[in-house]
Structures are given as structure tokens and as C-alpha cells.
């Protein structure tokens, strides 16, 4: 699978993205960053954490922080239900769970489909949105995950 992807990438600049929904919005991340997708389980709250950090859960023995992606991206964070899912993503050395409303699709796109992010004032857009895709008339934002975890220095400044 990985091999094929690499070949495709090399040949025609094809990428696979996982798209998911938060509220009415659609987003996607590179599939290579996603380790697994699992249902929502109640998290243990962490003291002194930013509001978008829901806490930690047990992922087969590892302590996994859960980031409420809605809150992180500046939307209203929703009440969690069993319907919510956690996208387990690898960010650098760390593994983080991203709380989203639902996973919708796997998209296979070429790089030229990804449009650059229009210049907007929003800081969160600058922090996270890496590009936009127009698929079947829907707008899907490509999210970069590097800044998802709270950044100390940024907060202190």
C-alpha cells in the first residue's frame, strides 16, 4: 500500500487524504499521518491545559492526548457523543488523538487540485490550513498538524 502510494506520488503527484467533518465544515489531512481511527471514549481531564485539550485516553497502554479539533480551529466545540471519532495521528515523535465529528472519505488527488490558501486575516487559518480543495462543489480545507499541540512559547508570549 505504502509502496504503491510512493510510486504514484513519484509518477503523477497523487496524494491520499482523509476527509472529516467538524460541524458543517469539511477538512482533510494526509493519510500518511493517520495511524488509526477509533470511537470516542471519555477522556481524563488534564489540569492547567488549554481548553482545546480534552484530556488523555488510554490507547492500548499509551497515554494519548486528545485535541478537540473544532476548538483548536476556532469553532464552537460540540458536545461529545458516541458518534464522535478520534483520528489517531502521528505528529513528529508524538501520537495525538484528534476529536472530529465524523470521518467521511478517502480522497485521492493530484497536487494541482490543491489550491493555495487565500489570504485571510484569521490566525488559525494561517496556522493550520495548508490549502483548499474543491470536490463536487464542496470546499475541503487541508490541515497541517504540526501546530496542533499547544505551543508553550507562543502562549507565554
Amino acid at each position: 500500500m505504502t509502496q504503491t502510494n510512493a510510486n504514484l506520488n513519484a509518477a503523477g503527484g497523487l496524494r491520499e487524504l482523509i476527509s472529516f467533518r467538524i460541524g458543517a465544515q469539511e477538512f482533510c489531512v494526509d493519510i500518511m499521518a493517520v495511524r488509526e481511527i477509533r470511537g470516542w471514549t471519555a477522556a481524563t481531564a488534564l489540569p492547567q491545559s488549554p481548553p482545546f485539550v480534552r484530556g488523555v485516553i488510554n490507547l492500548r497502554g499509551a497515554v494519548l492526548p486528545i485535541v478537540d479539533l473544532a476548538a483548536r480551529l476556532g469553532f464552537e466545540s460540540s458536545e461529545t457523543s458516541d458518534r464522535h471519532v478520534i483520528i489517531v495521528a502521528q505528529i513528529g515523535e508524538q501520537v495525538v488523538g484528534l476529536l472530529v465529528d465524523a470521518v467521511s472519505d478517502i480522497l485521492t488527488v493530484t497536487d494541482d487540485v490543491i489550491q493555495p490558501t487565500p489570504d485571510v486575516a484569521s490566525d488559525t487559518a494561517k496556522l493550520f490550513v495548508r490549502g483548499l480543495l474543491a470536490i463536487d462543489g464542496r470546499m475541503i480545507s487541508l490541515i497541517g498538524l504540526e501546530r496542533v499541540l499547544p505551543d508553550f512559547e507562543l502562549e507565554a508570549a
Binding site: P47, Q48, S49
Partner: peptide, 16 residues
């Protein structure tokens, strides 16, 4: 279990 492995140190919390 380490908290730092996937998150960071939390003041007041030694580990999980």
C-alpha cells in the same frame, strides 16, 4: 505511564 511521551509535562502531575 509517561505523559511527556505524547504530550508534555503537566505541572502538578508526575505521570499517568
Amino acid at each position: 505511564k509517561s505523559l511527556e511521551a505524547n504530550y508534555r509535562q503537566v505541572p502538578g502531575v508526575a505521570a499517568a
